[in-house]
């Protein structure tokens, strides 16, 4: 049996997990499922592509297909994606949230998602594009698994982002405020937590991680306007599987979905890959709707 699918699943899963962190935070703090989250990934990837183009040259670092310009571009693009999310919130979501009907906000995010995606298609056409067209040689690492330098680098980057996020949520003051607000908004207000700052932090973190995930998809696969839409179902499934509000749960959920998808590609057929997330989602909803790390609804 070829074990390569384990590595493929791990990589796909870490990109899904990064996206799911944003979804799970938006859901637990702003109380709506954001259908535009996938499009933050796509916008982040295209923003990074534009910044790389503006810096000029890719200057790859030895075994990698990319160099410091892409890393720099990713950081800039994370900021730009956060700006996009904050602008959307200011224009649309915040106003609707104030009316208190959360399902209307979901609907607005659905409309915004359609508009954002089609805007990308308008600007860049639906043809896929790449950060680099260089071919990477995969090195064998034993057990019949081969890995490219890019994959190793991006797995390490994911690990760093996830550990950083976890520490931020557990140790920093803002992280504690975010958790407090998600558990009990009224009480959080009473103890003097600045809700606007919590909301802002949620958008910034969610959008920045979505952007990072989008750039990774761009480096390892390709950049397309529909890339976010294709990842939306796995991301939602991962967030629910992990338990809404739980950052480690979102990452673990992402890894489980990624590995299951890769296993399905190996054993069932690549054309059924997209159904895996749905099957897992239905199973979770029927058997354990609170997810792995979730808390039961009051």
């Amino acid at each position: 049996m070829n074990l390569q699918f384990l590595l493929d699943g791990l990589i796909a899963g870490s990109m899904i997990g990064l996206g799911a962190i944003g979804v799970t935070l938006t859901y637990s703090i702003l109380r709506f499922s954001n259908f535009a989250h996938g499009d933050f990934m796509a916008w982040g990837a295209y923003a990074a592509l534009a910044v790389v183009g503006a810096i000029g040259g890719s200057l790859p670092m030895a075994p990698l297909s990319f160099g410091w310009p892409l890393l720099l571009a990713m950081v800039v693009a994370m900021g730009l994606t956060a700006l996009l999310a904050l602008t959307l919130d200011w224009l649309l979501f915040a106003r609707l949230r104030a009316r208190g009907q959360s399902i209307i906000v979901v609907m607005a995010s659905f409309g915004a998602s359609m508009a954002l995606r089609s805007l990308l298609e308008f600007m860049f056409t639906s043809r896929p594009t790449y950060f680099s067209r260089a071919i990477q040689i995969a090195q064998p690492v034993g057990f019949g698994i081969r890995v490219t330098a890019d994959q190793v680098a991006l797995l390490l980057l994911t690990l760093a982002l996830v550990v950083g996020m976890h520490l931020f949520m557990q140790r920093s003051q803002r992280g504690r405020e975010m958790r407090a607000y998600s558990q009990n908004p009224a009480l959080a207000r009473v103890v003097g937590i600045d809700v606007d700052k919590v909301v802002r932090a949620t958008w910034i973190i969610g959008a920045a991680l979505a952007c990072a995930s989008g750039v990774m998809v761009g480096v390892l696969v390709q950049i397309r306007p529909l890339m976010g839409l294709d990842l939306l179902l796995p991301i939602f499934a991962a967030a629910i599987l992990g338990g809404i509000g739980s950052v480690p749960g979102a990452v673990l959920g992402g890894l489980i979905i990624g590995l299951s998808e890769a296993a399905a590609v190996q054993f069932v057929g690549a054309e059924w890959r997209a159904a895996v997330a749905f099957v897992i989602l239905m199973a979770v909803l029927l058997v354990r709707p609170m997810g792995l790390f979730g808390v039961a609804e009051r």
Partner: peptide, 15 residues
Amino acid sequence: KSDYLAITTFGVAVV
């Protein structure tokens, strides 16, 4: 939660 219906119907369309 009401959002779960939205997410699931989205999945139905995909499948």
